[in-house]
């Protein structure tokens, strides 16, 4: 194994172990989205009676939400862990070793991707147990896992960027409400074409989170919808690339200061 790969592996393992050792970091991304799914699937089941609603199972419709909500938790976990590394001086000590800074980023994000895959398996498992059938079949399930990993990477890189720029766990945590607003002002609870209030429909249409949700939803409800997949994967890829470039730059700046 090359030195760089070795460094990424060690730091990735550290990221996973550190997350597992903090039960709140594992339980919250699993429990909260499932709780919201339970509440909404019971409370909004009546919505399936609206003309034009795409399925008669609200759980199938709402199952997309945990994927994105779980990614928000990934953002917070990555950012908070990285901010703690800055606050405790771990990053400073790292600069004294031959370890490359970018390995820290890759390792941290590797840990997030692993957690995202675990979360996706749990969400899908709960969906299947409650009777959801994935319209796109086994290949669709694999695509869902790939999408969960990509979204986890993109949001994790955003969290890393916030941590590297601010160096403060509190500042990273304060981003959560902002992300939450993006989630709620989207097609999270109702398809965009069924939103009556014009400004809300326009906001949901302009909100990239709607397309991430609709990508997951298309695989579960519709089958293979090229447009929804292209938009979902495209937006997630753009966010991932921009966030990775930004966090790499922020890491260089941070390490130069150390």
């Amino acid at each position: 194994m090359s030195a760089f790969a070795d460094q990424v592996y060690v730091l990735g393992r550290r990221s996973v172990v550190r997350t597992v050792r903090q039960p709140a970091n594992v339980v919250a991304p699993l429990l909260f989205p499932m709780l919201l799914l339970a509440v909404n699937s019971g409370g909004l089941k009546a919505e399936t009676n609206l003309p034009g609603f795409p399925t008669n199972s609200f759980v199938a419709f709402a199952l997309a939400v945990p994927f994105i909500q779980g990614a928000l938790f990934a953002t917070m976990n990555t950012g908070t862990d990285l901010a703690r590394d800055i606050q405790t001086g771990f990053l400073n000590r790292l600069t004294l070793t031959p370890m490359r800074g970018i390995a820290l980023l890759c390792g941290q994000l590797g840990g997030v991707v692993v957690l995202s895959l675990v979360q996706a398996a749990v969400y899908l498992g709960v969906g299947l147990i409650t009777g959801v059938r994935i319209a796109s079949g086994p290949a669709g399930v694999l695509t869902l896992f790939a999408f969960a990993a990509l979204v986890g990477l993109a949001f994790g890189a955003l969290g890393a960027f916030a941590a590297l720029r601010t160096g403060s766990g509190e500042a990273v945590q304060s981003l959560f409400p902002a992300f939450f607003v993006f989630l709620f002002i989207s097609s999270m609870n109702i398809p965009r074409n069924l939103i009556e209030v014009t400004w809300f429909r326009d906001a949901a249409t302009a909100n990239p989170v709607s397309y991430l949700l609709e990508c997951v939803r298309s695989l579960i409800i519709t089958g293979w919808d090229g447009e929804a997949l292209a938009l979902g994967f495209g937006i997630a890829s753009v966010v991932a690339i921009v966030a990775l470039v930004a966090s790499s730059w922020a890491l260089r700046v941070r390490m130069a200061r150390s």
Binding site: F184, I190, E196
Partner: peptide, 23 residues
């Protein structure tokens, strides 16, 4: 802000629920 946000998200986003039979 949070109550206003929830009010906006629920009342604005889900107003079509008034058309659900039985509401």
């Amino acid at each position: 802000v949070f109550p206003l946000f929830f009010f906006t998200a629920f009342a604005g986003g889900l107003s079509n629920i008034r058309n659900v039979p039985g509401f």
